[in-house]
Amino acid sequence: MQSTVKEIIRQFREELSPIYNVHEAFQFVWLIFDHLHGWTKTDLLLRDDTKLTDSDQLFVENALERLKNHEPVQYILGETEFFGLPFEVNPSVLVPRPETEELVEWILESVKSDKPLRILDIGTGSGCIAVSLARHLPGAIVTAWDVSSEALKVAEFNARNNEAVVSFVQKDVLTTTPEEMEGYDIIVSNPPYVREQEMELMKENVLNHEPHLALFVKDHDPLLFYRHITRLAAVSLSADGLLFFEINRDMGRETVELLSENGFREPELRKDLSGNFRMLKALGPA
């Protein structure tokens, strides 16, 4: 028997109540109908007496069961939006976060030169940073690395889908030597930075579904990726080149010290919209 949209909203609120509040449940319903039919939130309210088709009913029921299992809605839909662009996502890549959009905005704000920039995104995942920069800096030469071949397939699709020119390379930054580096004007990375001790603080939709390879580092070496990337950036950034990181909000001071020890200048921490230090910018060594 087909439900109405109003009944679906009520069902989502009731059955998801142990996990999500009523506003989050409504948001899920809207995202599903936006995905299926391009509806706005206003459409959802004005058309709440609409009966679902057989195919929509099956899709909605499947989505509800997966949400009850804490699966991210973006994986259920197979897509999300980042910096105004559509991105395919699946369990081989992290779901792009709003704070990463803020990092991209900071990079764009920092670009002062009209010359074509050479940009490297390390640990590209879905390609959200690299693709967004390529679209908003049309003269830039953008390269993106990731150790995961599955992630690179997603990133390459996203670049094609958004008509962005990005060169993708499968590369492990932990085994890359300074001698292998080319020259860049901007290096950016959102590397793994969640310590294992922080696992218990994470929501199940992240912990049980998103790729641990892209999330976690050992407690005894939380700056592992930052240390390697900083050493590579120190030899490959151009004069006045910039290094950008997304960081663990509890490791800001330590990350700044790491950059300073490697000759980076004017390190600047920036808070995200939630008030946490989540971004870092620095000038390369003189």
Rank of each mutant, 00 (worst) to 15 (best):
V73F: 02
R160D: 13
G84D: 07
P178V: 06
T230C: 10
K68C: 02
N248P: 07
E102W: 01
V169I: 15
P98A: 11
L36C: 09
E81V: 08
L207N: 08
P285A: 04
L152N: 05
V131F: 07
E79T: 14
K51E: 11
I141P: 03
P191Y: 04
T175F: 12
D49K: 14
A233I: 06
A63H: 13
R278K: 09
I186N: 08
V154R: 03
E14H: 10
G127V: 11
Q2I: 01
K41E: 14
L108N: 05
H209T: 10
D114C: 05
V165E: 09
D49Q: 15
T143C: 14
R66Q: 02
D49S: 15
E109P: 08
F216R: 06
D48G: 04
M202Q: 09
H209D: 03
E102N: 10
L243R: 01
M251D: 12
D172S: 11
L31R: 13
Y20F: 00
L273K: 11
E24Q: 12
P116G: 12
I129N: 06
G275F: 04
E163L: 12
E163K: 15
F225R: 13
N21M: 09
E268T: 08
L152M: 13
E196N: 11
S110K: 07
K203D: 07
P18C: 01
K68Q: 03
L207C: 03
R10V: 01
I8R: 00
L120H: 12
V104Y: 00
D56Y: 00
H37G: 04
I76Q: 05
H136Q: 11
G127M: 07
I76T: 09
E198R: 07
N69S: 06
L243N: 00
V235Q: 14
D121F: 03
E204H: 15
E210V: 14
E210I: 06
E179T: 15
A151M: 14
M279I: 02
R249Y: 04
P91Y: 12
W39K: 00
L273H: 05
L45N: 03
V111L: 10
N262H: 13
L224R: 13
S55E: 14
S126Y: 12
Q11G: 01
Y184E: 02
L174Q: 00
E101K: 04
T143I: 14
